[in-house]
Design a protein around this nucleic acid. Structure first.
Length: 346
DNA sequence: AATGCGGGGGG
DNA sequence: CCCCCAGCATT
């Protein structure tokens, strides 16, 4: 009964204030919901929208995605981050075509077995895409539930997490499950925000424990953080004077996996040695100011070293994982590298 | 259970 | 500068 009141309040709020015109809500299919959910992992709605539009224009269905090359997928993904998502998406598309006749599975077990789809994403695909009752637990839902029930402690704590899953499962209705799950995310994104939440307009603010006890700013607790380590390197920006740079394809694992980037070196001497080996004259080497790029787990401090060869056909010896390419948005460059090369080219 | 994985936006 | 955001895979 308590749960039904909660559901009724949330759904009533959704009817008036919920988001209903997001791109993946238009022509709602499991495929479109799937793509959007993967892109939305740890990524804000406003960032995702242009990527989603481009991606769907190129890959309107699972078959077109499965038939594509990974290079084309990663190029459309460049700038979104968490590139393993693109790899998993591509792998999953091929599995869906080969093992599921091109249809997304309709059970939590089968969905979760696909690369890149965990418990929450599987629940979202089922509920939003097919109206099947399944709970979700993303950052928004965690925040709403933690506050409403006055749950202290960091939501990433496995003990807390399990409690939240139980709660989400118990609260999820069997009718209007798509609207309900969407409403919970919208509520977290637009009312129950991290800072300055709009408790006065919240449909469940009257019986929110955090609001009642004045703990809104303290719940949910923040992740315990250590100071980020700093990694340093030199990046060689070798350019031929005609807008092209010598770029290397990175391995499909680790940071910037599968993207093109500049050759990296631990020290400047290694750069000279490398150039000497390739018979490249680096006497005009120009050292740009150090830049910092911050990942979620470390700072990368790198010094760009610019060498202009003035030669179109400078041969780079093996192992030849490199190519001379003109940097642009379509080839799959990390955002900070694209920014750097654009500045150098100017 | 802890760690790795990005980039954009806001304070 | 700091923090967070529609999480998942790997170890």
């Amino acid at each position: 009964m308590q749960h039904e009141n909660f559901q009724r309040a949330v759904l009533g709020w959704f009817d008036q204030y919920g988001r209903t015109h997001l791109p993946w809500q238009k022509e709602r299919t499991p495929y479109r919901v799937w793509i959007s959910e993967i892109m939305l992992q740890q990524t804000q709605v406003g960032t995702v929208i242009p990527y989603f539009e481009r991606f769907l224009a190129r890959f309107p269905d699972v078959e077109s995605l499965a038939e594509s090359s990974f290079d084309e997928v990663i190029a459309l993904w460049a700038g979104l981050g968490y590139y393993a998502r693109a790899r998993n998406l591509h792998r999953a598309a091929r599995i869906i075509v080969e093992r599921h006749r091109g249809q997304l599975p309709t059970s939590l077990e089968e969905l979760s077995a696909l690369p890149g789809i965990g418990r929450s994403t599987a629940g979202a695909i089922l509920s939003l895409g097919s109206g099947i009752r399944a709970p979700i637990l993303d950052g928004n839902v965690k925040r709403v539930l933690c506050r409403h029930r006055g749950i202290e402690g960091w939501p990433g704590n496995p003990r807390i997490l399990e409690k939240l899953w139980e709660l989400s499962e118990a609260l999820t209705p069997s009718i209007r499950v798509a609207d309900y799950n969407q409403a919970m995310m919208d509520l977290g994104a637009t009312v129950c925000t991290k800072r300055n939440p709009g408790c006065s307009t919240c449909p469940v603010g009257r019986d929110c424990e955090a609001f009642r006890s004045g703990r809104i700013d303290a719940i949910p607790a923040t992740k315990p953080r250590r100071t980020l380590p700093v990694k340093r390197c030199f990046m060689l920006a070798l350019t031929n004077g005609h807008g092209a740079f010598y770029l290397e394809k990175r391995q499909n694992v680790g940071v910037w996996g599968g993207l093109w980037s500049l050759p990296e070196f631990d020290c400047e001497e290694d750069v000279y040695a490398w150039c000497g080996k390739q018979h490249i004259d680096c006497s005009n080497l120009e050292r740009l100011p150090q830049r910092r790029h911050t990942f979620s787990h470390y700072h990368l401090d790198f010094v760009p070293l610019v060498v202009r060869t003035g030669s179109d056909h400078c041969q780079i010896g093996e192992p030849s994982l490199g190519s001379w390419l003109i940097p642009n948005e379509t080839i799959g460059l990390p955002a900070p590298i694209l920014k750097l090369l654009t500045e150098i080219a100017d």
